[in-house]
Amino acid sequence: QAPETKIVDKSRVACDGGEGALGHPRVWLQIPEDTGWVECPYCDCKYVLKGSKADAL
Rank of each mutant, 00 (worst) to 15 (best):
T5Q: 07
C15S: 00
L57T: 13
C45M: 15
I31Y: 02
I31A: 01
D34F: 05
A2T: 12
I31R: 01
P32W: 05
V8E: 05
E33C: 11
E4I: 14
A2P: 12
D16T: 13
V27T: 06
E39Q: 15
S11I: 09
G23E: 10
D9Q: 05
C43E: 01
A56T: 14
C45Q: 15
G18S: 06
V8H: 04
A14T: 07
G17L: 01
T5K: 07
K50E: 10
T35R: 07
C43K: 00
L22E: 12
G18V: 07
C45H: 15
G20W: 03
A56V: 14
Q30L: 11
Y42W: 10
K6D: 06
K50H: 11
G20N: 07
R12W: 14
A21Y: 10
E19L: 10
R12A: 11
C43H: 05
D9S: 11
P3S: 14
T5Y: 15
K53Q: 10
I7S: 04
G18C: 15
W28L: 02
P3K: 15
T5H: 10
H24Y: 04
C15Q: 00
A56M: 13
K6Y: 13
L49R: 03
Y42L: 14
A21P: 12
K6E: 10
W37E: 06
C15I: 00
A2Y: 13
A56P: 14
W37Q: 05
E4H: 15
G17Y: 01
G23H: 10
R12E: 13
A14G: 07
V38A: 02
C40A: 05
K53T: 10
D44P: 14
I7Q: 03
W28A: 01
A54R: 00
G23T: 10
Q1L: 13
D16E: 12
R26Q: 09
A56L: 14
C40H: 07
E19Y: 11
E33M: 08
C43Y: 05
Q30H: 10
D9A: 08
L29Q: 02
H24E: 04
C40R: 03
I31N: 00
P32C: 07
V27A: 01
R26Y: 08
R26M: 10
S52G: 13
D34Q: 09
R26N: 06
R12K: 11
P25F: 10
V8W: 04
A2M: 14
E39S: 13
D34G: 06
G20P: 04
A56Q: 14
S11T: 13
A2G: 12
P3L: 12
S52M: 02
D9R: 01
G51Q: 06
W37K: 04
S52F: 06
Q1H: 15
T5I: 15
T35M: 08
K46N: 04
D9C: 13
S11P: 12
I31T: 03
A2F: 11
I31H: 05
K50W: 06
A56K: 13
D9V: 09
E4K: 15
E39G: 10
L22A: 11
G17K: 02
L57A: 14
D55S: 00
E39K: 15
D34P: 03
A14Y: 14
K53F: 08
L29G: 01
C45E: 02
G20T: 05
D55L: 00
Q1C: 15
E19N: 10
C15K: 00
G17P: 05
A2D: 11
E4W: 15
T5E: 08
K6V: 15
D16V: 11
P41G: 04
